[in-house]
């Protein structure tokens, strides 16, 4: 009973049609570039306008849906993934995009990543990692490097940071990639491959917070004298151990697709369970089914 929407050919649109409120981000914030890549991707792929759906938690990055003229949801801090799961499972006609920050993803929402990943729910999750809490004005984030001075660590962060790539691979995500908002062409390539992936695709996108952690990713930015090190061409993306090895590289690490495998999606598995159940009962209507069930209780 999970209906497809009527797919009447919707009109071609351009990036301009997708622009909504002017972003409230600080000038120079890395998140701008991810937004414009997203516009470009939608324009290129012409996902029907009424089917573009963006979900976010809370944070600077999570304001993303307001800036896209499309269906959008601004949900709770850390809980965007289960919300998107509800949409994705009931609406196979949509490809849901989830946007959020490192705190949203790896701190308050940490548990949800594991389960969206292991269930392999079809969606694309873009984690805009600035290694700091931006919205709440510079507290330590779970990805802040040791020694980072924040308002909650005035003498420097002491807790070991999470390695996003390791966590995502371990959780069972079936598409795991890493990119850098200063290199929009690379962001575009990763987003497009994520969109084409049938399953839970997740991208960690380093995205500089110019306000509270300026220069955090200069070491990977060629324009700032850094080195943008691509995943070696001979890397086997289906090799989990090799993916870990890439993830273990010291900062700024590698960029590209670390891991990609095919595994049945939760969407497909649930559809299979429905299919199997329906085969047993034939064409009975809900009313007939309930009647039959209740006869067993009489």
């Amino acid at each position: 009973m999970i209906a497809e929407t009527q797919t009447q050919p919707s009109q071609r649109y351009t990036k301009k049609d997708l622009v909504a409120d002017h972003p409230t981000w600080c000038p120079g914030c890395g998140d701008f570039s991810i937004l414009s890549v997203f516009f470009k991707l939608m324009e290129k792929r012409q996902v029907p306008h009424e089917k573009i759906t963006c979900v976010a938690g809370i944070g600077c990055s999570s304001r993303f849906p307001y800036f896209v003229n499309a269906y959008g949801v601004h949900f709770l801090h850390g809980r965007a993934l289960p919300f998107a799961t509800g949409i994705s499972l009931m609406r196979p006609d949509l490809h849901v995009f989830v946007f959020g920050g490192d705190g949203d993803a790896f701190s308050i929402g940490g548990n949800h990543i594991d389960h969206a990943a292991r269930k392999n729910v079809r969606m694309t999750y873009v984690i805009m990692d600035n290694e700091v809490y931006g919205l709440t004005k510079k507290q330590t984030s779970p990805t802040s490097p040791v020694g980072f001075k924040s308002k909650t660590d005035p003498t420097g962060a002491v807790d070991h940071p999470i390695n996003p790539m390791k966590k995502l691979i371990a959780a069972g995500a079936t598409f795991v990639a890493r990119t850098h908002s200063h290199l929009p062409n690379h962001v575009m390539e990763m987003m497009e491959r994520a969109l084409d992936h049938d399953g839970f695709s997740v991208i960690e996108c380093l995205s500089e917070c110019t306000e509270f952690f300026p220069g955090a990713f200069d070491s990977a930015n060629p324009r700032k004298g850094g080195q943008f090190q691509l995943v070696p061409p001979d890397h086997d993306v289906t090799d989990e151990v090799a993916a870990y090895r890439l993830a273990l590289a010291p900062p700024p690490g590698y960029f590209g697709v670390f891991y990609q495998v095919k595994r049945p999606t939760k969407n497909a598995l649930e559809a299979g369970i429905i299919e199997q159940a329906r085969q047993k009962i034939g064409s009975a209507t809900p009313q007939e089914l309930l009647q039959k069930t209740f006869q067993r209780f009489s």
């Binding site: 949900f75 289960p82 998107a84 799961t85 509800g86 009931m90 609406r91 389960h115």
Partner: peptide, 27 residues
Amino acid sequence: PKYGGIFVQAEDELAAIAMACGASYAG
């Protein structure tokens, strides 16, 4: 499933209501 529906065992109660809100939002 007999009615074409889905029930998900979520990772916790907050995730469960989040999924429910998502499905409701989706129609």
